[in-house]
């Protein structure tokens, strides 16, 4: 279990601030969704938290340690990242790709240990893709590939799992499968999860806490019910919506409202 503190963080690429004065604290074991329109800074915040970008101001702490003081190897053995998609140019098999998750634990010339192999097998099993182990990664469907990447992240035995819109290129069924897997890992293994999400309804279903970003600032932070309000969404996303109640779970369910004359046939 690992806690995360983001204190007064600013970040900018070449032109203008992308994130401004971000203050967040995520407790160990939480499952947090980052929401916001494109360009609101979700991906950047994930990259800052994984340590591959450095904040211009402020600091990010993992269990009290400043992330800029930690080595890549140490971070990777505690924090794993699942991006939108990976393209792998060589013909690696699924089990070889999942084994890449053991990289922070390898010694330079030694072969992987029995332990490493065990962790890889367990990760394949947890994600439910053990029967794909010997298939070639580049021949799989998008949904299968994302599961392989999730298994690779699990092979790092992370305490904090970061996901950057992990379902954006998937159909609806693999989207739900992916999020249910992540939710299961969060509940059963206590892995802290922070995920950038583009689908508000899926976010409302699977996350305990949502953070809404607007133009690089935290605009709302709370339970799905507190964050996903009609006023909030129309303000942040500039879209007209109505918030209903999900018939099964009681969580907010967002219905988009078209302008009436746009749906009328002439």
């Amino acid at each position: 279990m690992i806690g995360l503190e983001i204190n007064q963080v600013d970040f900018s690429y070449f032109d203008g601030l992308v994130l401004e004065d971000i203050n967040l604290s995520v407790k160990a074991g939480e499952m947090v969704g980052l929401l916001g329109p494109n360009g609101s800074g979700k991906t950047t915040l994930i990259k800052l938290t994984s340590g591959i970008l450095k904040p211009a101001r402020g600091e990010i702490r993992l269990d009290g340690n400043r992330i800029t003081d930690l080595s890549r190897r140490f971070i990777a053995s505690n924090v794993a990242v699942v991006p939108q998609q990976f393209h792998i140019p060589f013909a690696f098999t699924v089990s070889e790709v999942v084994t890449l998750g053991r990289t922070p634990f390898f010694k330079a010339l030694a072969a992987e240990s029995e332990d490493d192999r065990q962790v890889v097998d367990n990760s394949l099993e947890l994600v439910g893709i053990d029967e794909l182990a010997e298939r070639r990664f580049d021949e799989l469907s998008g949904g299968e590939r994302q599961k392989v990447i999730l298994a690779m992240a699990l092979a790092q035995q992370p305490k904090l799992l970061l996901l950057d819109e992990p379902t954006v290129h998937l159909d609806i069924a693999p989207q739900m499968e992916m999020l249910e897997l992540v939710r299961g890992l969060n509940i059963e293994r206590g892995i802290t999860v922070v995920a950038a999400m583009h689908d508000l309804n899926l976010a409302a279903l699977y996350f305990d806490r949502l953070i809404l970003l607007k133009e690089g600032r935290v605009w709302a932070d709370g339970t799905p019910k507190q964050v996903l309000t009609e006023a909030g969404i129309s303000e942040v996303f500039a879209a007209s919506v109505r918030v209903e109640v999900h018939p099964l779970t009681g969580t907010p369910h967002i219905v988009v409202m078209p302008r009436v004359n746009a749906t009328k046939r002439q």
Binding site: P83, F92, L100
Partner: peptide, 22 residues
């Protein structure tokens, strides 16, 4: 000595960094 890191670099520069490569 760089065999593991070259394998990880198949994930791209960011992907390799995520699994602990400097």
């Amino acid at each position: 000595f760089f065999a593991f890191h070259l394998n990880a670099l198949a994930l791209g520069e960011e992907g390799a960094a995520y699994v602990g490569v400097n």
